[in-house]
Amino acid sequence: MYPQDGPASFDIREFARTAQGSHRSAIDLAPLVEEPLGTDSARLLRALRDSERATLHRMRDLLVTATHKDARVTAFLTTWMFERYWIADALDTVLDASPAARHLPATVGPARRVRAERRERRGPIRRSVVAGITGTRIVAEHMTTGLVDEWIGQAAYRRLAGASPAMESIVDPLIEVKKRHVRFLAEEAERLLTHSVRAQRVTRRALRRTAWPLGAVDRSHHERAFFERQVFGDGDGRAEARGIRDRIAALPGIGAGAAATVESRLLPAPHGGKSGAD
Rank of each mutant, 00 (worst) to 15 (best):
F227C: 02
E228S: 15
M167R: 05
R102K: 15
E228F: 04
R265D: 15
T93H: 13
M81I: 06
R127G: 12
D96P: 00
K69Q: 12
W212S: 05
D92P: 00
L77W: 11
D28A: 10
A66G: 12
A249K: 10
T210L: 06
H23W: 09
S41Q: 11
D218L: 08
F226G: 02
R119T: 10
R208G: 08
R46D: 11
R72V: 07
I248T: 04
L266A: 07
I12P: 01
E188S: 12
L267E: 08
D70V: 11
R127Y: 03
A111H: 13
L192R: 14
E14S: 14
E117C: 06
F232D: 03
P252M: 06
P252W: 06
A166Y: 04
L160M: 04
V130F: 10
V139G: 00
R201Q: 11
V139M: 01
D89A: 15
S41L: 06
A8Q: 13
T55Q: 13
G146A: 06
H142L: 07
R84N: 15
T107K: 13
I248G: 05
E228R: 15
T194M: 07
R127V: 03
S164N: 07
S98G: 01
D28H: 08
R265C: 11
S25G: 02
T93V: 11
F227R: 04
D96S: 10
E176P: 01
I152N: 03
G146K: 05
G257N: 12
F227S: 00
R204G: 12
P252K: 04
R191Q: 07
M167C: 06
R219L: 11
T144D: 01
M167W: 06
L44N: 02
D89W: 07
V94P: 02
G253V: 06
L251Y: 05
T136D: 13
T203K: 02
G21T: 10
E14T: 12
R121T: 14
F227N: 00
P252Y: 03
A260D: 14
E117P: 00
D40R: 14
R208K: 15
L192S: 03
A250R: 14
S220M: 02
V182N: 01
G253F: 04
A19H: 07
P213A: 10
R115C: 02
R58I: 06
R198P: 01
L174A: 05
S196L: 04
T210G: 01
L267N: 10
A54S: 15
A211Q: 11
R198D: 10
R118E: 10
A19R: 15
R204L: 00
L147K: 08
Y157C: 02
D236V: 12
S169T: 10
A250S: 13
A47H: 14
V148P: 01
E52I: 04
S98T: 15
P31I: 03
Q154H: 13
H181I: 02
